[in-house]
Design a protein around this nucleic acid. Structure first.
Lengths: 340, 340
DNA sequence: ATGAAAGCGCTAACAA
DNA sequence: TTGTTAGCGCTTTCAT
């Protein structure tokens, strides 16, 4: 491996001079600089980031942990985070926890031991608390994305989940639906809880009773119990005319299972969900959704994180950004006759 | 920061003993081990991976660079790579080049300077050559995914792109289509070239002339020139009855633009593509595709990479895996009357 | 403008 | 079984 000492030797200068040339620090004569640069190129020198991080006590690398790499919400968010990081000259690395607490724990130890400068994290859920506590303990700046975790005070970017869900249900009600089922993520996830609340509130405001059998709590992520979902779909009696899914991945799953049963959307079942489908929003059923501003989650979260890192010394109050969801009406909802 | 010296002091042992406990090396009395472990927990010690990497000259971290984080092919591939890495106890970090040579170059410098142990890379295209050369020069083991790069000999996992495309076109021909257009990625990408060849061969074998105006070369990735695609769609005369897209993202784009024009799929245009849609395959138009084994790309590629790292000393010949694509017939193709 | 020495946190090699 | 020494590649401090 080529080190600054190799460069120094060949250029007849000290290692320190080489270091100065690399980092553009201190005063160096143009002649020396040119000479050093030339040798660096000749030997294909690459700075050893590891060594540099060790002495500087910072890596200039940021980390983004998402919970489902196949979900367009998170991948779009990732693009936003990447763009914001790049703008400030930070490097960004990704991790994917697949909604699993165990994988999240693995990433935590990677994060802590690799001494990244900061973390943008969509936590698996409330049980992520110890993970976040340990970040705090080790003074790793972090920003939470999309999900609150009770017991943690920190910077956070949230979507207005309750309003998003409520808006969708109200839209369904306006279209004449009265029997509306909901499939949702785990109640250990703040956004799932709020989405359920939004659903409940909308029903209540419209004097429609809440029926437990119409609501299924499963997982937002790729680890779903399909049998459970199938049973839920088959056992609702009478069947709902509309279904709201707590996120896009659940909607896709429900669409698949409905079609397996020969049910058409929206003719036989209307369906809506929270989160848009990125590039897939143009595929049938053209879903009516409460679209979250995925890119902004990443972009603004990253800005907050970098801000926090820079202001490390001065104690800023925690910031909380709540991004509204946008109701996008497409064609996955059938207007019923009793339209009002 | 808590270091092994802090632990050593509090436990009344030497730093070396602490190191041995952490790494489970050498002989340590149970009593000492217990004592050290206890102190480590008390002080919430986290090993400094940076320091460790510096002395060991290896990070035990692998890197996966993909070209489009919103493409289910790559995200599914990522899952495969992750699973294989985990199985061997390696950590995996992701990067996303968005099909951009510049972003790829940025990641190269991250990769080189952070001294990861190996890289799994889907190159942006033939111009990635210098990037790969520099990996070789710095003796960073890597495995290429999905795309060959002329001038580079290395381990590689490929899909059978030519056969995949040919199979799709032949299916279209069997359904009676004669005027088949193709939208493809950049010809600087090996898989795009092979897919075009597959298209051309299928036509030739069936005595159908090749028409340049029916073929559009654009980008596989998120940086498409939409105007160009729209013009191409509008200017083909007479219009094709079927379109083959070089990958799934292009298919989605074409679907969107066709629908914008009020054209139905498959009634007005049949459409097929290479690559499946992951969770979205169940959305309409239920696409007929040549599905690549995305997960296997990642899993097998990662296995090869780890193998290569372990056998670093003994010079194994380069390995090449070619994964066949599977024709999945759904409902995006209209059988024409002149069916044969 | 340039260099020498010390040390970031850790482990390999050797010593006791 | 445990400890001492040296050094991984780099930068900070202080000296020249």
């Amino acid at each position: 491996m080529v080190t600054i000492y190799d460069i120094a030797e060949k250029a007849n200068v000290s290692a320190m001079t080489v270091s100065r040339v690399i980092n553009n620090t201190g005063k160096i004569s143009d002649k020396t600089r040119a000479k050093v640069r030339k040798v660096m190129e000749e030997l294909h020198y690459v700075p050893n980031h590891t060594a540099r991080s060790l002495v500087l006590q910072q890596t200039h690398i940021l980390f983004l942990l998402i919970t489902d790499i196949t979900n367009p919400f998170y991948t779009t968010l990732a693009r936003g985070a990447e763009d914001a990081a790049k703008k400030s000259g930070y490097r960004l690395l990704f991790g994917n926890s697949d909604e699993s607490l165990e994988k999240e724990a693995d990433y935590m130890s990677t994060i802590l031991s690799s001494r990244v400068d900061g973390v943008l994290i969509a936590p698996a859920g409330d049980p992520s608390l110890p993970h976040l506590k340990s970040l705090q303990q080790h003074k790793v700046p972090f920003v939470l994305l999309d999900r609150e975790v009770p017991g943690i005070e920190c910077d956070i970017v949230l979507g207005d989940s309750k309003e998003g869900a409520r808006g969708l249900v109200e839209y369904l009600l306006k279209q004449g639906h009265r029997r509306i089922a909901m499939i949702n993520g785990s109640s250990s996830i703040s956004s799932a809880r709020l989405r359920l609340q939004g659903y409940q509130e909308a029903l209540k405001l419209n004097d429609i009773g809440y029926e437990e059998t119409l609501v299924l709590e499963t997982s937002f992520g790729p680890l779903n119990d399909l049998i459970e979902i199938e049973q839920w779909l088959d056992q609702m009696e009478p069947a709902p005319t509309a279904i709201i899914a707590g996120n896009n991945m659940l909607a896709v799953e429900v669409i698949r299972l409905l079609r397996k049963r020969g049910l058409r959307i929206p003719e036989d079942r209307s369906i809506v969900c929270i989160d848009d489908f990125g590039p897939y929003s143009q595929m049938d059923p053209f879903m009516t959704v409460a679209a979250q501003q995925a890119y902004q989650f990443g972009y603004l979260g990253m800005q907050m994180l970098i801000e926090r890192i820079k202001e490390r010394e001065s104690p800023q109050p925690w910031k909380k950004i709540v991004l509204p969801a946008e109701l996008i009406i497409r064609r996955s909802v059938l207007p019923l006759k009793q339209n009002r």
